[in-house]
Simulated scan of single mutants.
Amino acid sequence: MLAAVLAAVTAAAAGCAGGSSASADPPALTKARAQQVLASFAAGANQAGPRLDRKKLPRIEANPQLKMDVASFKLRRAIGQRPDPVAFTRPAFYIPRLHGYPHWFAADAVTGTGDRAVRHALLFTQTKPGAPWLLAADPYPQDAALSRIALDSDGYATAVDPGAKGLAITPARLPAAHAALLTRGPGAPGASTLAEGPRTHRAYRALRQGESTLAKQGVTLSSRFSTTSYAIHALRTRGGGALVWYVLKQNEAYSASQRGRLAVSGDLVGLAPATAAKNRMDTIVLVQYLATVPPKGRATVTGMYRKAVVARGS
């Protein structure tokens, strides 16, 4: 009798550990349904893309992806460039077992071939039963980061709570640490939890170099990164780490005492009239990140999708 009681207690504890288990929570959706969601998204993207029809995007996307792709369509319309048709190859699905809504899952897939091949770390969300599955994020990883996600015996993943302990940094604290590093440099609080890389320390140095270059041209640039209210999503990796999706906001302010020094160019095209910037221009940029957080050590930022979404000149 005692043995049976102890076994029941042990099983209950195992089910609570980590926030989900095969016996406690069902998967967010089946693998077959996830394949349908990806195919449906591709079809919707290929309907919206040729005409750069921004009104069709809310049918297949949610923020922040929606806000960023609307801005991308504005840029493409201004420069007369249509996107390539969307065709995903080699998809792999990482579906967590979840309790309650919203539901979500990730997909690793590739578009394009050869030198134009792009790897995606797509994140789809569903707000409530019967609601559409929408693409919420799609940072581009440098490598096959999603292949390190741990799967159970049925092939499903484990969601990691943003406040989960046992990691080099909790997913909830990661965005603030990253924003501090990009704004204030390696000496900022929390910056030491991030590994050196092109999207962390090198990005900070490149931004400072850009400010110096602009100053020689008579333009002052100030840049500040901050956290956002967009949800943080994380999946358990093999070895007890986590793969984390999160979003930062970058506020940029350009100013020049002489007219003609500023111009709406580059990623800002389509967001404001070409002559909008006279002596000042303020922009808002959204940046999606994908990071691998180990149990010990430093988090490595492995993916990114950046897009300016607002530009105001005066």
Results as ranks from 00 to 15, higher is better:
257 S>R: 07
212 S>K: 15
270 G>C: 04
37 V>F: 04
62 A>Q: 09
74 K>A: 14
133 W>Y: 14
226 S>W: 06
89 T>F: 11
299 A>D: 13
33 R>Y: 08
86 V>L: 13
225 F>E: 04
251 N>E: 13
34 A>N: 09
18 G>I: 05
56 K>D: 09
54 R>V: 12
175 P>V: 12
140 Y>R: 15
27 P>E: 04
123 L>M: 13
167 L>M: 11
105 F>E: 04
257 S>N: 00
118 V>T: 14
70 V>T: 14
307 K>L: 07
79 I>G: 01
188 A>V: 08
50 P>H: 04
123 L>G: 05
296 K>P: 02
40 S>P: 01
87 A>W: 04
254 Y>C: 00
126 Q>Y: 11
252 E>S: 01
94 Y>C: 09
77 R>P: 00
39 A>N: 09
156 Y>I: 09
57 L>G: 13
183 T>H: 01
199 R>N: 10
301 V>Y: 15
309 V>L: 09
109 A>N: 13
114 G>S: 03
84 D>M: 08
266 G>T: 05
121 A>H: 00
164 A>N: 05
251 N>K: 12
196 E>Y: 10
185 G>W: 00
136 A>V: 04
52 L>E: 09
14 A>R: 10
242 A>Y: 08
43 A>E: 14
42 A>H: 03
95 I>Q: 03
2 L>A: 13
5 V>L: 15
108 D>W: 12
203 A>S: 09
78 A>N: 06
295 P>T: 10
224 R>M: 04
311 A>H: 05
272 A>M: 00
131 A>G: 12
224 R>C: 03
200 T>C: 01
137 A>T: 07
57 L>C: 14
228 T>A: 05
242 A>T: 06
111 T>F: 13
6 L>K: 09
237 T>V: 03
178 H>C: 02
96 P>Y: 06
196 E>N: 14
143 D>W: 05
24 A>W: 15
287 V>M: 11
93 F>H: 09
102 P>G: 07
150 A>D: 12
168 A>S: 12
113 T>E: 15
161 D>P: 00
58 P>C: 04
91 P>S: 10
111 T>N: 08
142 Q>T: 12
128 K>Q: 15
9 V>T: 11
72 S>G: 06
122 L>Q: 12
120 H>W: 13
201 H>V: 02
241 G>H: 03
248 L>N: 06
15 G>R: 13
303 G>K: 10
281 M>Y: 03
288 Q>R: 05
239 G>Q: 02
186 P>V: 10
299 A>V: 12
269 V>G: 01
83 P>Y: 01
296 K>N: 13
221 L>A: 10
72 S>C: 01
160 V>E: 10
229 S>G: 04
90 R>M: 11
59 R>W: 01
235 L>S: 02
184 R>G: 02
234 A>D: 10
25 D>E: 14
220 T>N: 11
221 L>Y: 06
129 P>T: 03
260 G>D: 11
88 F>E: 02
110 V>T: 15
301 V>P: 13
217 Q>K: 15
139 P>I: 07
7 A>Y: 04
159 A>K: 08
39 A>I: 07
31 K>S: 05
36 Q>I: 04
289 Y>C: 00
194 L>E: 09
18 G>H: 10
263 A>S: 11
284 I>F: 02
33 R>F: 09
129 P>G: 08
275 T>S: 14
68 M>R: 03
39 A>F: 06
